[in-house]
Nucleic acid binder design. Structure first.
Lengths: 119, 119
DNA sequence: CAGCATCCTGTGCGATACTG
DNA sequence: CAGTATCGCACAGGATGCTG
C-alpha cells in the first residue's frame, strides 16, 4: 500500500501557525499547563527572557483564541490567574508527538535533562 | 496519578521551532511529502505566494537540518528534485495530531474542503 | 501586582532583476 | 530551470517607564 505519500492538508492550521509558531507561543501554553494555574509575574519569571510587553500581548491573543482562561481576583494587590482551556489542554497534548520526533536524532533517542515527555 | 497536569519539557524543540515555526516551514515539508518528489519550480507554483528567495533559503535550511534530500540531475535544462528524508517524513507524521486538534473548534469537528487528514 | 505606552532593533519575507 | 542578489517594509519582540 501507499502509506508513503498519503496526502495531508494543512489548511486547518491556517491561523494557528501565527499563534503557536511565535517564539514564546508553545512555551507559554506549556508552562501554564505544567502548573495548572499561573499568575502573570510567575510566568514572567518562569519563562526567563520574555519581556512583559511580549507576554502581555501573547496572553491577550491566547485569550482571544480561547486557549487560556483568565480569572481576576479583585484584591489588593490585584491577583490574576491564567489557566488552560479545554482547547488549550488539547493543544498541549497535540504537540507531544512532535516532541518525541524531535528527540529522535538519527536512529538513537536523546534524553532530555528535564523530567521530559510523559510515557 | 493526574493525567491532567503531567509536566512536559519543550527543550527538545529548541532549534526546531526556528525551522517549523516559520511561515512556510510546514507548508514546504508537507507539500514535498504529499508529492514524494518535487522540483524547485513546482514547489514555487504549488505554494502560491512564496517568493523564490524565501523558498531557496528555506530549502537550504532544511537540507542542513537533514529534513529534505536534494537530487541534482546534470542535464540541460537542469533538473533538481527534492524529497523528504526519513526524518522529514517523521516530522510530517508528527504534526497530524496537531491538525486533528486544529479541526476541533469547540465541540464540533470542522471539515476541510481539501482531501484532508488521513483516518 | 498586573499590565499598557513608547521607542528601537533585528529579520522574515515579498518583489524584482539577473546569472549559470 | 534553478536558483542568487538587492532592496525595502512590516512586524515580532526587547527595554524601559508609567499607571490603576
Amino acid at each position: 500500500m501507499k502509506s508513503q505519500s498519503n496526502p495531508i492538508c494543512l489548511c486547518p492550521l491556517d491561523g494557528v501557525i501565527d499563534t503557536i509558531g511565535k517564539k514564546w507561543g508553545l512555551l507559554i501554553i506549556n508552562e501554564i499547563g505544567n502548573h495548572g494555574k499561573l499568575r502573570y509575574n510567575e510566568l514572567l519569571s518562569e519563562l526567563k527572557g520574555i519581556s512583559p510587553s511580549t507576554l502581555a500581548s501573547m496572553l491577550k491573543e491566547f485569550e482571544k483564541e480561547k486557549l487560556v482562561g483568565k480569572e481576576i481576583f479583585r484584591e489588593i494587590p490585584p491577583r490574576v490567574e491564567y489557566s488552560l482551556s479545554t482547547r488549550g489542554k488539547g493543544l498541549r497534548e497535540a504537540i507531544v508527538p512532535l516532541l518525541k520526533w524531535a528527540l529522535k536524532k538519527g536512529n538513537y533517542t536523546v534524553h532530555c535533562s528535564c523530567s521530559l515527555v510523559k510515557r
